[in-house]
């Protein structure tokens, strides 16, 4: 497993980083996002959506209420939010069935159980605005692409 770190200095950076992640996303990818309230999960997904080619006029909003939102870009983006769910209810969503058709991004991933192939993204608040965004990727060759991109978003 490869670990890749990005440092975001602002919500705009988080959006950019998401876009870079989204540009390399493929149909069948499952991104599961961990991060506390206000860490910028939806902001990151807005970026991923843009990277996938979802037009900006399609506002990517928090799916906490609707649980699943689907957007059309170069691939479909299935945006899932488990915030309101109990763990036993997560099974009912059957996220897997969307993977044939789309890129799937899950917020509040700690509420569910996932298989090893999922790409994990952790967002940690390291300051009022600053966030450390860590990806955990199984596929080494794909990890290399993101690692290369992440150099731009490293401290120093």
């Amino acid at each position: 497993m490869e670990r890749i770190e990005f440092i975001s200095k602002s919500p705009y950076d988080t959006w950019d980083i998401g876009e870079q992640i989204g540009k390399q996303a493929k149909r069948g990818d499952l991104f599961i996002i961990y991060g506390e309230l206000g860490s910028g999960k939806t902001q990151l997904v807005k970026g991923i959506a843009r990277g996938i080619g979802v037009a900006d006029w399609q506002y990517v909003v928090s799916p906490s209420f609707t649980i699943i939102n689907i957007y059309e870009g170069n691939h479909s983006l299935c945006h899932v939010d488990l915030y309101r769910l109990e763990p036993h209810e997560v099974i009912d969503i059957n996220v897997e069935e969307f993977l044939n058709e789309s890129v799937v991004v899950v917020e509040w991933a700690e509420r569910g159980k996932w298989w090893n192939g999922a790409i994990k993204i952790f967002i940690d608040s390291t300051g009022e605005m600053e966030r450390k965004i860590t990806m955990e990727v199984e596929d080494v060759s794909r990890a290399e692409i993101w690692r290369h991109i992440s150099k731009k978003y490293r401290e120093n």
Binding site: Y59, V61, S64
Partner: peptide, 8 residues
């Protein structure tokens, strides 16, 4: 809204 609903 661009992100969260007010009530949310």
């Amino acid at each position: 809204t661009r992100d969260d609903a007010a009530g949310e």
